[in-house]
Design a binder for these strands. Structure first.
Length: 287
DNA sequence: CCGAGCACCTGTCAGC
DNA sequence: TGCTGACAGGTGCTCG
């Protein structure tokens, strides 16, 4: 779910609502929420009590909160995770997994996650960049992202272009929605082999990725239901701007041809049959 | 190195 | 009304 724009929306909320606050207590309500933190739930709570949150940062779909100890809370929302800032007296959410209270009272920080694919961990010494996410590439909104390196690395891959966009070690933050939207804008079918794309074509595609992510951030992200919300529980509005994702059978906004849906990696890909013709052959060696 | 398949979960919706 | 199967924004493992 949440892809870069949704995670960025959450990061902005955390930056505003939890920066400079000192953690009082931590309750882990479900052990799966901290499964990536090997010392376990009790240690998770103990090491965080009394720490002050200094900032809220993001790379791709990962978030981290640098602490005054030099450690960080690192997290991923998975498919259904939410970080909510709620009044302390508000009733527990059905899928409340972790609750943080603060010395100043007022509001809690709650990790709520229906499907439990997400989770939080403490990254020792991870304030600058958690080691747990060192394998994740920079995302295209990062000022230090290198367009030329991305183009070169993509052309070296022998894979399909949508797979490349979803590969978080090549470019991070792009998920199923924004990959389909960027490919539609670039008029490329996701099955096009990367090695057969020219440098300028990949550069143009990258520009569309950056455009669609930026536009979605302005709208507070995409949400089709109450699962994808900011820290105050509010949905974003980018679903109104989607051109292909979820629009099977509806007319392409460029040419009117009904949008097609194809199976892809146990989910779906949406594209325009006319603007984005399938490649004639599967990936093959170029020489 | 790469992809296919699957595991990890809960909930919703369509169809029977 | 219930049951069943398909499907959902992600990651990460094994296997070939």
């Amino acid at each position: 779910m949440p892809e870069l724009p949704e995670v960025e929306t959450v990061r902005e909320g955390l930056s505003r609502w939890v920066t400079s606050r000192r953690i009082a207590t931590v309750e882990v309500r479900h052990p799966r929420a901290v499964r990536r933190y090997l010392p376990g739930a009790e240690h998770f709570a103990a090491v965080l009590a009394g720490r002050t949150i200094l900032d809220a940062r993001r790379r791709g779909k990962y978030l981290w909160l640098p602490l005054d100890s030099g450690d960080a809370i690192v997290g991923h929302l998975g498919m259904s995770g939410q970080l909510l800032v709620r009044p302390t007296e508000a009733a527990d959410e059905t899928h409340l997994r972790i609750r943080f209270t603060f010395d100043d009272g007022g509001t809690d920080l709650r990790f709520v996650d229906q499907r439990t694919f997400g989770g939080l961990a403490v990254s020792e010494g991870g304030a600058t960049l958690p080691a747990e996410i060192a394998h994740i590439a920079r995302d295209p909104m990062d000022p230090d992202f290198s367009d030329t390196d991305f183009v070169a690395a993509t052309r070296r891959r022998r894979t399909e272009v949508k797979r490349a966009l979803l590969d978080q070690t090549l470019i991070s933050g792009v998920g199923n929605i924004y990959a389909d939207e960027a490919l539609w804008r670039a008029r490329l079918h996701g099955a096009r082999p990367t090695e057969a794309l020219t440098g300028p074509a990949i550069t143009r595609l990258l520009g569309h990725v950056r455009d669609v992510l930026g536009e979605a951030i302005k709208e507070g992200g995409t949400s089709f239901d109450a699962l994808y919300v900011n820290v105050n529980g509010e949905s974003g509005y980018f679903d109104r701007e989607l051109n292909v994702y979820g629009r099977e059978g509806l007319p392409c906004r460029r040419c009117g041809t009904p949008i097609r849906r194809e199976a892809f990696m146990n989910r779906s890909s949406f594209s325009c049959p006319r603007c984005q013709p399938r490649p004639r052959t599967a990936a093959r060696p170029t020489r």
